[in-house]
Simulated assay, not measured.
Amino acid sequence: MQRKNARGSGEHDVEGLLDKVYATAPSDFVSRREELAAEAKANGLVEDARLIHAARRPALAAWAANLLLRSQPAESRRFLELGRALREAYRILDADGIKELSEQRSSIVSALSRQAAAPAREAGHRLSDAAQQDVASTLRAVLADQDAADRWAAGRLERALTPPADFAAGTAAPADAPQKPARAPTAQRLSRTPAKDELAERRRQRQKQLAQARKGATTADQQLRRQRAEQADADASLQQARDLRDQAREEYQRAEHDQQEAEERCQAAADFVTRAERAAQEARQEVQCLTNPAR
C-alpha cells in the first residue's frame, strides 16, 4: 500500500480505501476499517490512517443505498440527472406539471428502492420493510435536494436521508413559479414590451425543461422496467440452478447408497466364493484319501 508523490496518484490512495470501507457490509465494517487503518499506519501514512479510522459504520439502509450506487453506476447517473431536471422543473413549473412529474418520480423511486434489495441480499443482508422505506426516503431526498444528491453520489452515506417536505408533496406550485400576468388594457397588449418578451422566453424555457424532465423520467422508467425483467430472469435462473443442484445432490446420495449396497453384495459374494473354494478343496482331499487309502 504505497502512495506516489501526489495524493490520489498511488494505487491505494486514501479516497479509494475509504470507498472500500464504505462498500463493506455493516457486519464487517469495523474490522475492515481497522485493518485498512492499521495498514496505512504501518506504511507511515498517519493522516490516512486517521481519516480511515474516523469512518463511521453506516446504517443498513444507508449501506444499501451506497451499494446501489456502486452496483448500478449507469442507472445511478441517470437518476442523478433526473433529479437535476426535476429540481429545475419544480422551480418553474405550474401545479399540473409538478403533479405529473411527481407521479413518475414515485414510480421510479419505488422501483429503485426494491432494486437496492438485490445486491444487499447477494452480500448476505436482507432488507426489512423499514430499511427499504429508508432507502426510498434517501432516493426521494436525492431527487429533491442537491446536497443530498452530492452526499449519495459520494457513496459514503452513514444514515438514511429525509427529503424536504415541500418538494415531496409535489402538489402545489412553488412560490417563485411565474404567475399569469394581469389582463392589461388593449392598447398595452398591442405592443410587445421587454417584460412580455421576458415572460415569453421564460415560458419557452419552462416548456423545454419540462420536455427534458419528462424525457429523463421516461428513459429512467424504461430502464428500470428492463432492469426488473433482467432481475426476474436472473432470479429464475438462480432458482433453476438451485433446483438442479438439489436434484444432483439427491442423485449423488442415491448413487452412493447403491454403490455401498453393491460393495456389500460384492464382499458377500467374495466371502461365499472363499468358503466354496475351501469346501471344494476339503472335498478333493477327502476323495483323494478315499481313493488312495493308506496301507
Rank of each mutant, 00 (worst) to 15 (best):
E39L: 04
R91V: 09
Y90D: 02
I92W: 02
E100L: 06
S113L: 04
L45P: 02
A38R: 11
W63N: 07
L82W: 05
S106I: 12
P73R: 15
R50T: 07
G83N: 15
A42C: 07
E47Y: 09
A95W: 00
E47M: 15
Q104N: 09
E75D: 11
A42N: 13
R114A: 04
S71C: 10
A62R: 01
L67M: 06
P58V: 14
S107H: 08
A111H: 06
A85W: 02
F79I: 14
R70P: 11
S113A: 13
L68T: 07
E39M: 11
I108M: 00
H53R: 10
A62M: 03
I52M: 03
L68E: 05
S106V: 07
I52Y: 01
F79N: 06
R50C: 01
I52L: 05
V46C: 09
R56H: 02
A38H: 10
L86P: 04
Y90S: 12
A61K: 00
S107Q: 08
A38G: 10
L60I: 11
L101T: 03
R50M: 10
A111R: 08
L68H: 08
L69Y: 01
L60V: 12
A65L: 04
A54F: 03
Q72H: 15
D96H: 11
K99T: 09
P58A: 14
L80I: 11
R114Y: 14
L45V: 14
D94S: 15
R87D: 02
P58T: 05
Q72T: 15
S76K: 09
K99N: 03
K99S: 03
G97P: 00
A111G: 11
L51G: 04
A38V: 12
G44W: 13
R50H: 04
D48P: 02
E75H: 15
L93Q: 09
I108N: 00
L112M: 09
A74T: 14
N43G: 05
V46T: 08
K41M: 12
E75N: 13
S106E: 02
R78F: 13
A64W: 11
L86G: 12
A42F: 14
L67P: 02
G83C: 14
R50Y: 02
A111K: 02
S76L: 11
S71H: 11
I98D: 08
A42S: 12
A95N: 04
S71I: 06
E88T: 15
L82R: 10
E88L: 10
A64H: 06
Q104G: 08
A65H: 04
S107T: 13
A37H: 03
L36A: 01
A62W: 03
V109Q: 01
E75P: 05
A40H: 06
H53I: 09
K99V: 07
I98A: 15
E75V: 15
A89W: 00
A37N: 09
R78H: 12
R57E: 00
A111V: 07
R105T: 09
A49S: 07
L82G: 12
L101K: 01
A61C: 00
R50L: 05
A42T: 11
G83F: 07
E81K: 15
G44N: 05
S102I: 04
S76Y: 09
A62N: 02
A62P: 00
E47V: 15
F79A: 13
A59W: 02
G83H: 08
L101F: 06
P58I: 13
L67C: 12
D94Y: 10
R105L: 04
P58M: 13
Q104L: 09
E47D: 12
L69F: 10
L60M: 10
